[in-house]
Design a protein around this nucleic acid. Structure first.
Lengths: 231, 231
DNA sequence: GACGCGACTTGACCGCGGTCAAGGTGATTT
DNA sequence: AAATCACCTTGACCGCGGTCAAGTCGCGTC
């Protein structure tokens, strides 16, 4: 079990929350954590459930979303390796306000349970780090809200593509979609058909080249104009 | 100046951040705070400026917004008496990520400056309180995301109206719009014309009665159905 | 009270994007 | 390799809601 424990350490150490923590204190955090594995489609927690732990993604990916009365869902977050979620539920709310589902088979999470809250109350160094990282989370959500407030579908998509981490190829950018297109559509609050049509139109106009999840952005100037058009 | 200081105490005491703080510690927070008065249209801070303080509204109101390249602006928050803003900028970022402007003449704010951060590092009780209140703020933003995910204009409006603080009149509810209708339209991401037409249609159907910023909700059952229809 | 300006309303028009339906194209399973 | 299933694409349709334009209302100022 020592190897398992090392994996937990590695995952937690990389988290902004625990940057610069001395070893002794860090070990007291590690004690609160355990590793859990999920299959594709497994629910990690449900809206309204008692919040016993927050999570860090070690492998795979997770969708955090809110279900709406008519059965559709709005994505709040997509999480990949190294990212954490559900801290507020544990630290303050007591219940999960959203749903979380594993998107890939062999999605591995580190669960940090409520003993961590006790630690927090005693250790100012720890809580300052948490305050700071919750603040960052807040800003992220504000940006997400701004994205969604962009009314036109093309502007939302262009905005999204330009924010993706890109590799420079000669004279243009190459990006990888981190999601299946249907999930991306849901993230952008548009129909999958619309996403498909937009990509095709832009490809016909020579703005992009699209092959599976790999996109080449050939004319960022025009894409920028589209993103700004009505944001 | 004693009266000024009392006003600051009163404002801060009402803030969720400082609930249940003992008097001695609370006084050490008060020392970090000062009162500032703004006229209608005064900028409180600008995007990119160094974040020296966060603010609590004592009187008047404030709009927090982001300017977009084409000169329009996206409202992030509207703040009224008793609400605070810009904590993340001070606690983590170091710079303001948005603009803030006073909307009314005699808008009075309490500014809590960066000495507060030092306090936070020393006092676990304080940071636990802050963690908790940032968590609540996060939850509010998640709900805002859910609101934006509601695609149809009528559903968004109905949802909004039903969430307003209401006074019971006999057999129906009376609510006050806290914003000018054009600003409300912008908040709901719809055109002012659409807002106008919706209110008229509902009035014709006997669902509401509308006079200026005062609305009577005559049939909340149907309004609820509209709000849920496609959220 | 008359004026002026901004907020609000109403009408006419039409394009964006959602829905339904029917293929096509992979990928994983057996 | 065949079968199966999920994902993606494309076409046809149409209603919601945005835009433009022209008033009307309401409020503060002089």
């Amino acid at each position: 079990m020592q190897r398992m424990s090392d994996a937990i350490r590695e995952t937690l150490r990389a988290l902004p929350h625990f940057h610069g923590l001395d070893l002794e204190l860090f070990e007291r955090v590690v004690v609160c954590a355990e590793s859990r594995t999920f299959a594709r489609g497994d629910m990690i927690f449900l809206h309204g459930e008692e919040a016993r732990a927050f999570f860090v993604v070690r492998a795979g990916s997770v969708r955090v979303y809110r279900a709406t009365p008519d059965g559709r869902e709005q994505v709040v977050h997509h999480l990949r390796a190294g990212q954490s979620f559900a801290e507020p539920a544990v630290l303050s709310l007591g219940r999960y306000p959203v749903n979380a589902i594993a998107l890939e088979s062999r999605t591995e999470l580190v669960a940090v349970d409520s003993r961590f809250v006790e630690l927090l109350k005693q250790e100012p160094r720890l809580s300052v780090a948490i305050v700071s990282s919750l603040s960052m989370r807040l800003l992220g959500l504000v940006e997400r809200i701004e994205e969604l407030a962009i009314t036109s579908a093309p502007a939302r998509l262009a905005h999204y593509l330009l924010k993706l981490p890109a590799k420079d190829a000669d004279r243009h950018l190459v990006v990888q979609l981190p999601l299946a297109k249907k999930d991306l559509a849901s993230h952008l609050a548009i129909a999958p058909e619309t996403l498909s049509r937009l990509l095709r139109r832009w490809q016909d106009r020579g703005l992009i080249r699209s092959k599976g999840k790999t996109l080449e952005l050939l004319d960022t100037r025009i894409l920028l104009a589209i993103a700004d058009r009505d944001e």
